[in-house]
Design a protein around this nucleic acid. Structure first.
Lengths: 224, 224
DNA sequence: CGCATAGTTCGATCTTTATCGAAGCATTCC
DNA sequence: GGAATGCTTCGATAAAGATCGAACTATGCG
């Protein structure tokens, strides 16, 4: 009977199917309203509302009110990466999903992880950015080199640190089991990919699907 | 209502206080019997037994029968690192523990993480091993250099890969928020620290407490 | 074999909590 | 102002599951 941090509290919050579905949906990175989350979780609005207040109280969510809309989002990247870790275990021990299915394959290639790109594409990108010395591994962190700063700035990606959010961060990829790029820069790159219409978000999924031309452009800019 | 891996199943397993306590105890790395875990969780033997079979069915534990003893342990390093991630969130959002307390401080300095050393000491050690080029960062993995192989071998630490377990692996430290060394080598180093009596495991805790002389030795060998 | 220790299974009880309909607030639109 | 939309609170119901005592199985010891 040891004390220690209350992991049961956190885990039981995630342990309800409705709440797990909501969190899963929020892993897409976009904040959602209570009604959207109710739909996502397959429960009525009152039920969803009750779940949301529990998640809020548990510190897993943040809330942004805009007019009569209330947008719920994951509280932090740390929460997101905890959820990724749980997904990893669930994938590993889970009842071997009958057929991997096309959506699942798409997820492995490229998907949204909270606010940045994950999957094979993202892991390959980080590797290339290191090779080209646009990013530097330092200690156990990732740092932007001066050539990297110039490079991203030329692409119209702002890399000045604001607030306390780190510019670069490594995030473990559950499908590849290697790191991909998170942090402000990771988020900015995903923004660019979507803004340039190189890829679109699959509806109701975290999968990111590149268009043929978009993939070419992405490879030219980030994988060359 | 999306499908996807069943994270609720995994999380709800951890979400029960009794099971969470058991898992927490197993994070110490040593396999424990059902009675020990019952004590640890503060429940009766039948209750513990029921929890254990659920954890087994969920794939979070492994079981080794030896005579009339049945030793339960965490199923994998992946499971351990998921639990660490949950601990991290619980620490971050949890009801600010009134006073950090001495045990808590000791945990931050050095503790057992499944089968290797974690905490400030462990993070510092990994940094030094990189500085001395005994370990090399490669891609996103850690590799043993040839001088490193010689070094550890001279210390009586075997570094030949056996089975499929990687020799070196990075593991994110929840207290320091940087990586420390896991994998076969990480485990072997912890073994040596205990075997040489440089430090002892705190009773009923994951904390690892160095003796004055032990700390000196450890610093000489791994932090110099 | 008989006894002791380790562990599981069974059955009954009891608490927790997920759920939704109805009603209540709050904000915006007209 | 009044109607509509988005969301929360309340109250009652129902289901899930945690708990333990007692009985049962298995292993070891003399």
């Amino acid at each position: 009977m040891r004390e220690g941090p209350d992991i049961a509290r956190i885990a039981s919050l995630i342990g309800d199917p409705a709440r797990a579905n909501m969190l899963n949906a929020l892993m897409g990175g976009t904040a959602l309203t209570a009604s959207e989350l109710a739909l996502e979780a397959g429960v009525s609005l009152p039920t969803a509302s009750s779940h949301l207040s529990k998640l809020m109280e548990g510190g897993l969510l943040t809330l942004a009110s805009q007019g009569r809309h209330r947008y719920y989002g994951l509280a932090s990247a740390q929460v997101a990466s905890m959820i990724e870790a749980i997904i990893g275990v669930a994938e590993a021990v889970g009842p071997r999903r009958a057929r991997p299915g096309p959506r699942d394959a798409a997820m492995r290639v490229a998907r949204v992880c909270y606010d940045h790109l994950a999957g094979e594409q993202a892991v390959a990108m980080l590797d290339r950015l290191f090779d080209r010395k646009l990013l530097l591994r330092e200690d156990n962190e990732i740092r932007l080199s001066s050539s990297g700063a110039a490079h991203f700035s030329a692409l119209g990606i702002e890399t000045h640190a604001k607030a306390r959010r780190p510019v670069c961060r490594a995030c473990l990829d559950w499908s590849v089991r290697r790191s991909h790029l998170a942090g402000m820069l990771g988020a900015a790159i995903l923004d660019k990919i979507i803004a340039e219409k190189w890829a679109r978000r699959e509806k109701d999924s975290r999968a990111v699907v590149f268009s043929p031309r978009g993939r070419q452009e992405f490879e030219r800019v980030f994988l060359s």
